[in-house]
Design a protein around this nucleic acid. Structure first.
Lengths: 252, 252
DNA sequence: CGCGGTTTTGAGAATCCTCAAAACCAGTGG
DNA sequence: CCACTGGTTTTGAGGATTCTCAAAACCGCG
């Protein structure tokens, strides 16, 4: 089981009072759909910072939507080299690959306390049968993940170290803002430079020197285990990135 | 329109006689599902080698399944740097991102003559409503693409140049084999070293030197604009890669 | 105060890049 | 048949980027 360490009891948070749904980032749902999602949801799971939510190679019986907190998806090579694939934030669906194809081929770890809505993998077919609209939404979310991966791959493959770093932080910052992470306070991204290194495909040392340039140019602040964006436009302009440009998205 | 240059007339290839479906790589379909797919299919499109099938930024009205041939998905940076995201082969669904989310954020180009089944984007909702099983299949295919991207990102981010090259060629080769590309003859991958470079995130020169090592070790052959695998196991072992390990997959 | 995790710094080495030119090859037109 | 052409592969060389190794500085916490 993946959930054994760092997990907590499952209390109930009614979908009708979901704190995420009212955000302008998400599209409105029919009461009827909402009611179905509510029955689809089996409970909640709280995961501690540093705990592993899903493990590569496992056959997970669950599917999750992030209610609050930060995490990341990653893969490992045999000798321990790690590649972070993407970050997960509120509203993201995790574990879909495992649910639909059988086996997870990546792991997910919590960067902060993570609160998850738990769905039963076996009920997914039922959802597809009874609520084609929601099924479509799930495909939408899968396509969105694919799109983010495309962009990350472009970044790691073809951008310079400085561009990559700027892109990554601008990207995370933009995503976090639309889901209201940290409320109105400036977004504090809870990552270490090691995480950045493993995302960008760089060594820790070189990542440090690259981030230092962004810090010296007053584009970001760096605290121990946290990053705050000062000049998002400046980052975007270095990265040559247009911004998220997403409309409202579904939330399952 | 993306299809204007290099395209040909749409002749009819009945889904019941689809040359792909009997392959062991694909799962069996209910006659009823097959019949629906047949009505879902609006025609065929033949695209010449080098032509662009889908263009970044476009709102495509179509969705395609590759019937035969090779292609690749890619993104460009403003200054022309190109990152190839993945290769497309028979049985792959392309244009889903654009269909489901609105706008394409990557392009697709043909590496050989490409024969495509054309589907109407607008009919996708109908498919979700009437055939939840097929809807599920589409999600399955989207998850599969995501999985391939995860692996590619791991490769570009964390593998050495030699490992990357070995992985890429072993990966393409394995995929091509299960869909019977080139029939029984040894698979000839129709790519140039420039394509490899743009996939691995390396320069052309360094790619050449890296491929030469694989050639000298008699793992692959290289012709002008084509690559043939001699020792797939050798490549996999350099890359530290397990192989596709996929069971049968759906075909829409 | 000591400890573990994180960030910083320095230095030499390996990898990878750019620039530039040559070799090679298939196809085209004379 | 041959010269020409454009695309692809190959080679060399110097330089920039990025890596590894190693150690120090810093910081919150018990």
């Amino acid at each position: 089981m993946a959930e054994q360490h760092g997990s907590r009891s499952a209390r109930r948070y009614p979908c009708e009072k979901c704190p995420l749904r009212p955000l302008p980032a998400f599209r409105e749902f029919e009461p009827q759909e909402l009611a179905y999602i509510s029955t689809f949801k089996k409970g909640e799971l709280a995961v501690d910072r540093g705990a592993t939510v899903l493990v590569e190679g496992n056959h997970s019986a669950h599917l999750y939507t992030v209610l609050s907190g930060w995490g990341f998806r990653y893969k490992l090579l045999d000798d321990g080299r790690r590649q972070i694939l993407n970050y997960v934030m509120p509203g993201d669906l995790i574990g879909l690959q495992g649910s639909v194809m059988g086996e997870m081929q990546h792991s997910v770890e919590a960067l902060s306390e993570l609160l998850l809505c738990v769905f039963e993998r076996d009920n997914l077919h039922g959802l597809y049968r009874e609520h084609p609209g929601l099924a479509y939404d799930i495909t939408w979310l899968a396509s969105r993940e694919e799109r983010m991966l495309d962009e990350n791959l472009l970044s790691v493959g073809r951008r310079t170290a400085l561009e990559r770093a700027a892109y990554l932080i601008a990207f995370i910052h933009a995503r976090a803002k639309v889901v209201g992470l940290n409320g109105k306070a400036p977004v504090e991204i809870p990552i270490t430079q090691q995480h950045v290194a493993d995302t960008l495909g760089l060594s820790l040392v070189h990542t440090n020197k690259t981030l230092r340039k962004l810090i010296d140019r007053k584009l970001i602040h760096w605290r121990d285990g946290g990053c705050e964006v000062i000049d998002a436009d400046g980052l975007q302009s270095i990265a040559g990135w247009d911004g998220l440009g997403e409309g409202r998205r579904p939330l399952v």
